[in-house]
Design a protein around this nucleic acid. Structure first.
Lengths: 337, 337
DNA sequence: CAGTCCAGTCGAAGCGCTTCGACATGGTAT
DNA sequence: ATACCATGTCGAAGCGCTTCGACTGGACTG
């Protein structure tokens, strides 16, 4: 293992000079810099992470906490995680992956040990037990998701309330009066996950404003549960012509079941989904949808965090504006009998 | 930030004693141990990761390289990653998440800087460019996946050759003579990803041995490409009654299209999938399938790696035996016309 | 009863780096 | 010519931990 001292010796300068070449914190003459850089290349030098962290009390690592709930749609999580990792690298940070298992203890461990300089938390609950710890520590952090109380916290999320409103507006504009919402699994609501409740709130509020009838049903996804849910929906509201689907795992089952029941999409019923682009375009009917901008969320979270680490930036809630893309699954409401 | 020295002072012992209490590398009297542990608790002490890494040249971090290819099925990756993270924690290791972007440079960076003690590589290609680097360094590593040359490497993977054979045997046992294989996207084969080629090899070899006709078609997944692929299959082999699907994104489209064409599953055609359990049980027809044991793979990879780190264990290829679960999508071949 | 051993503890060295103050050097302003 | 400053470089002091050798006092052995 090559050390700073060896590089210094090889280049005929002192260790501190090499260090300053690396960090750029003091001016170095061009000739010296080049000589040092040459030595670094030749010897294949890599600064030792531990020593660096010890001396500078900066690890250049960002901790990313991903819970491992089975009822969350994984691809979105993964996409965010990957965007976070890529974004972090461009700022010179690596990602430490923490799964939910440890819970709040992980926060303590990471902040206490100086393992990471900052944290990004995913899948935040409205009243998350990690938040008090986060507020207590002076370690910068960013949440992906929105808790009930954002005081003193930085958050990045899709504006799910606006998302809900947007879906309702789209269907209302097409003349639909009875709308069913196929929501996330019941457990997601019980856990008070922000995005689910916010979407629902947006849907309900706008529906009321526009004078629509809205029926919300949680749904685990999969064919069997979707079939049961759909039966209940048409039982209670036979005139339903518009669907808003939030659970990705329910999208395809819903489409298949509607087809099976002889209800044509979009002639008889319209479907709007909240899902990643890929799901929308690869479904059996190209779906009118509001995209969940996973990449954007990951990128923005890193940007906010790096700003904090650099002393710029402050606590702030970044809500990304939803965009609805019209595709083949929504159309004018059928004219009444 | 609380340091070792402060704990030592609080407990009335020397710093080295505290260190030995923590590591257990020398015997400590019960009374001293308890006093020290009490102080640690009271002061809320967490060892500083950087200092520890520097002094012991062990970071207690395992690097996990996940490529970010869009044509791979993400949930499996994610499941493995989470299993790796959880497994690592039980052995006292944290996970550093590296995405494919950096490529081989990431290997150099991590081994060179002492950031991690060991690596786990996912989605290994048959002739992966990271392998020479891995062989050159003395840092322990485990691959999830199987390259062409496993000399000097430790690998964990599902036995995809046996998986292919198993699928063919099942269909052959039910009397099917013409089998179509809906493979991964063409790009996956072009990249020479081990698992795809191995499955195909297993399928072909066993089919030949059993005297079956086998038609293989790559497929990107999604409805449109699946429709095109399916048309070509029935065009070339009208008597096809058995399907083996390897691409998860093609499963549901295939089922929907068959239904649409009036071909009943499993009465007219049988479908066997290679996919995670969840996909098999949540599909519109409960699928006869060979499960991809993502969790098991992640767990085993960590075990192998930890064994190496502890000086136990050696280079070894661990191939997990596939298991086929019969569900509702396969049945006896229809009797000929 | 001297010699040996072991459990239990301590002090000090050092891991590889960052960073502070000090020191030259040469240019610029007075 | 003197004083001053900016620039470039160095030496040394740590950062918080692990670990090695050394020391102590009691429990054995012969």
């Amino acid at each position: 293992m090559v050390t700073l001292a060896e590089v210094a010796q090889h280049a005929g300068v002192s260790a501190s000079t090499v260090s300053y070449v690396l960090s750029g914190k003091r001016s170095i003459s061009t000739t010296t810099r080049q000589r040092v850089e040459e030595s670094i290349r030749k010897l294949g030098y890599h600064p030792n992470a531990g020593a660096r962290a010890l001396a500078s009390s900066r690890s250049n690592i960002i901790a990313l906490m991903i819970p491992l709930r089975t009822d969350m749609y994984v691809p979105v999580m993964m996409e965010i995680a990957i965007a976070v990792a890529a974004g972090a690298r461009t700022h010179g940070y690596d990602i430490l992956l923490l799964t939910g298992e440890e819970g709040p203890d992980a926060v303590r461990r990471v902040t206490g040990s100086g393992l990471a300089d900052a944290m990004i938390l995913m899948d935040v609950e409205l009243d998350d037990e990690r938040l008090p710890l986060l507020r207590a520590t002076d370690q910068p952090s960013v949440l992906i998701g929105l808790p009930a109380d954002t005081e003193g916290l930085t958050c990045v999320d899709l504006d799910f309330r606006a998302t809900g409103a947007l879906c309702v507006e789209h269907l209302a504009g097409l003349g639909h009066r009875d709308i069913a919402v196929i929501g996330e699994a019941a457990a997601v609501y019980e856990r008070h996950t922000g995005f689910a409740e916010r979407t629902l709130d947006g849907l309900r509020t706008r529906a009321r404003e526009l004078g629509l009838r809205l029926l919300h049903r949680p749904c685990e996804g999969g064919y069997d549960t979707m079939a049961a849910t759909l039966a209940r929906v048409f039982d209670e509201r036979p005139d339903t012509t518009g669907f808003v689907v939030q659970n990705e795992a329910a999208v395809e089952p819903l489409l298949a079941l509607l087809r099976q029941q002889g209800r044509a999409v979009p002639e008889d019923v319209s479907v709007v989904a909240v899902c990643p682009e890929q799901v929308a375009t690869q479904a059996s009917v190209r779906l009118t949808s509001v995209a969940v901008p996973a990449q954007e969320m990951g990128r923005r979270a890193v940007e906010q965090l790096v700003a904090k680490l650099d002393g710029r930036g402050s606590d702030e809630v970044v809500l990304l504006a939803p965009e609805l893309t019209v595709r083949a699954s929504s159309g004018p409401a059928p004219v009444g009998p």
